[in-house]
Design a binder for these strands. Structure first.
Length: 150
DNA sequence: GCCAACGTTGGC
DNA sequence: GCCAACGTTGGC
């Protein structure tokens, strides 16, 4: 079972929103992230939810994948801001996964994540990185959970 | 709101 | 295939 980190802007969609209902993690429009969603993120995988572009940036909770490799329906909807006319339903360009809420974590601020040497290789803590779906190694997962005191 | 870093687009 | 211009991301 693998582990991932997904970024989200909490003003748009937060861990609290996820706690209310499962969600299809749609709208990812970056090829590196797409490749993970299409090929590597599997059912039962664990996902750290990270809040970006807000007053308290950091890891806010845990989710679990309940459905993997779903063609992103928003890409086919002309009324969606995520519409992509170049995504063909017969050969979808963009993919999503469905998540269910697992639990909140005491917010782990980005500054603390950056200060932990065990996490130094994560794209998350690298300057200028914009990857919104990234793998988390077992060691990184343990380090993150260790920081929560859990 | 600012700005640096990055990915994508499009002209050539 | 190059690269400048542009739009977006995301921390601060």
């Amino acid at each position: 079972m693998a582990c991932w980190l997904f970024k989200t802007e909490p003003d748009t969609f937060s861990i609290d929103d996820l706690a209310r209902a499962n969600t299809l993690w749609e709208g990812v429009r970056n090829y590196q992230a797409r490749n993970f969603l299409r090929d590597e993120v599997k059912e039962e995988d664990e996902v750290f939810i990270y809040h970006s572009s807000c007053s308290r940036v950091g890891i806010a909770g845990l989710a679990r994948v309940v459905r993997a490799g779903v063609p992103d329906p928003f890409a086919f909807d002309p009324d969606s801001p995520y519409f992509d006319p170049k995504s063909d339903p017969a050969k979808p360009r963009w993919y999503a996964v469905e998540l269910t809420f697992e639990r909140r974590l005491p917010l782990l601020p980005l500054a603390a994540l950056k200060a932990n040497p065990a996490l130094a290789n994560m794209p998350l803590v690298k300057k200028g990185n914009r990857l919104s779906v990234m793998p988390v190694t077992d060691a990184e997962r343990q380090a993150i959970l260790g920081m929560t005191g859990v």
